[in-house]
Design a binder for these strands. Structure first.
Lengths: 162, 162
DNA sequence: TCACTGTACGTAATATCATAACATTTGAGA
DNA sequence: TCTCAAATGTTATGATATTACGTACAGTGA
């Protein structure tokens, strides 16, 4: 299951894209013996509804509209669960979260954040990670987890992606 | 002027290391027509006093001890100034700031954060950045600014750096 | 010298993001 | 059914960051 990493930046059948991701999430949770409960599922749906990063409080608000709890921990717990299971990512630069567009692929994503339209895409980051590992190794540092986040212009916003 | 990027992770003449950085900062500001005022200078000294990232409120506290203002904007403004002029970096993963160990070199630093001792080193990130640019280019994204941050173990903490 | 101007600094108030602690509910298995 | 652990909910608070506004001060030109 390989997804076009630039989907976030151009028109696509987003309903299908979200539906696929949800179905994958079900499978992944089942395989891991984890429970994709209603709040968690709904949280993922909310994230999937846009290729943007949403703040925890944005998510919370939408959860509350759906009858779930109104307090921050409700959102943070669900988001933490999703991140833990690789179904979402935390974008530190934005203090926000985004659905993972290629769950199950063990991946080292590099996030590309468009400063114009706020879209966030997950680029394949294997090469980046390899370069990072090498740079670290040269000074004897062992990388456990890395976050690579770039701000710039997406194809559409820089004008040649239409 | 090339500095051992792993200095953060082992013993070195830290006084000299900080003094050099301050002297460079003076020059850089002079060249840019920017004013390294007392608060800004003191803020840089505070950051330079350790190879760790300090939170804005930590910095603020130390500034206040030195007779400067006690309100958050005092620290944030000075820190923003330093970041803008390449004299410090913001570590998003830690919501914190660290002095730049190689100002003036136009560099694309990759930050290595030791999860044991909290030291932060700036590894040369040119290769990493190149890999990122390439990955981005493949989907038509143009990177303006990137942050590469890794958490892991420094040589000393993983046991072979003593 | 003096008014003007822009930058920097100080403070109050508030917005935004995140977690600790504890009570209650739910669901799977003994 | 009973029990335990996981999940959910709430209150309260902590940590990080910004807006808005007033004051001081250095440099410039009349």
């Amino acid at each position: 299951m390989s997804v076009d990493p630039s989907a976030a930046f151009h028109d696509h059948d987003h309903d299908a894209c979200a539906k696929t991701a949800l179905a994958q999430a079900e499978e992944i949770c089942a395989a891991a013996g984890a429970r994709l409960t209603p709040v968690r599922r709904r949280t993922l749906e909310i994230l999937l509804s846009e290729h943007r990063a949403l703040g925890a409080y944005d998510v919370l608000e939408q959860l509350a509209e759906g009858g779930f709890g109104k307090q921050p921990p409700v959102a943070y717990r669900a988001l933490d669960f999703l991140v833990e299971h690789g179904l979402a990512h935390r974008i530190r630069r934005l203090n926000a979260f985004t659905a993972c567009t290629q769950p199950r692929d063990a991946h080292a994503p590099a996030f590309l954040i468009c400063s114009e339209c706020d879209a966030v895409a997950e680029a394949p980051g294997a090469e980046v990670r390899a370069a990072l590992d090498e740079a670290a190794q040269e000074i004897g540092f062992v990388v456990a987890r890395a976050s690579v986040e770039a701000v710039g212009l997406c194809p559409a916003c820089k004008g040649d992606g239409a």
